[in-house]
């Protein structure tokens, strides 16, 4: 695979940008900045994909990530203390191990990449990649594509169910308490009854032993 000089220059720029912004994600105190540094890293990778003539995948990656990272920034503001970086913060655990793991994985992967002899069969540099991908998506790989769609739909339903306030039997905070078996029994009674049983169970077993 050989590329022209301008493409090489652009590649170096985007690659450096993608790596540097990926690093900055974990080096900033502001949640919104962290999310948008990550977005910048994705844009860098997306741009490299466009250079590789995988236009559609690269652009879709960028398109998707704008929404995803904004949600991420938003969720961070919702759930994380200190969203604006008023206080400096470094919230990490097993820091040294993590650094070691990161560096090791980089070395191993890079080494493998350099030492392995991959087949050399570059893609023909035409602008038909998008069209071929479309034919593939709705032709041979339709099953995969549809599975992905179904998986996403299932995930959405599941995610809403998990996140929503109402569980299957009522408010999530009160736990999912099953309804009573008798129609006139109070819910609270049923749950109190069951808790009692749960607590008594071990001692009953203990008595038998």
């Amino acid at each position: 695979m050989s590329t022209s000089a301008p493409v090489d220059v652009l590649f170096v720029l985007f690659a450096a940008g993608a790596i540097a912004t990926a690093y900055l994600v974990f080096r900033t105190d502001s949640m919104v900045r962290a999310a948008y540094w990550l977005l910048a890293s994705f844009v860098g990778v997306g741009a490299i994909l466009v250079l590789l003539k995988a236009e559609f995948v690269g652009l879709v990656l960028m398109l998707m990530m704008a929404g995803e990272m904004t949600i991420m920034a938003f969720v961070m503001v919702m759930f994380m203390m200190n969203p604006a970086g008023l206080n400096p913060m470094l919230m990490v655990h097993q820091h040294k191990t993590a650094i070691a793991a990161g560096v090791t994985s980089f070395l191993v992967l890079a080494g493998a990449a350099l030492l392995t002899d991959f087949p050399n069969a570059p893609a023909t540099q035409t602008s038909r990649a998008t069209e071929e991908l479309g034919t593939e998506l709705l032709g041979e790989s339709m099953l995969v594509f549809e599975t992905a769609g179904a998986a996403l739909l299932g995930t959405m339903v599941g995610a809403v169910a998990v996140a929503s306030r109402r569980g299957r039997y009522g408010d999530a905070e009160e736990g999912s308490i099953e309804p009573p078996l008798q129609p006139d029994e109070e819910w609270a009674q049923a749950s109190a009854h069951r808790t009692e049983e749960d607590e008594h169970e071990p001692s009953v077993h203990g008595g038998h032993s």
Binding site: V32, Y36, L39, E55, F56, L59, V60, M62, L63, A66, G67, M69, T70, A73, S127, R128, A129, T130, E131
Partner: peptide
Amino acid sequence: PAAGFVLYSAAISYVMVAVYL
């Protein structure tokens, strides 16, 4: 570009990033 529509859509979705920032 062949995927001009996608590029345009991506630009529209980054409006959200600009306004939020």
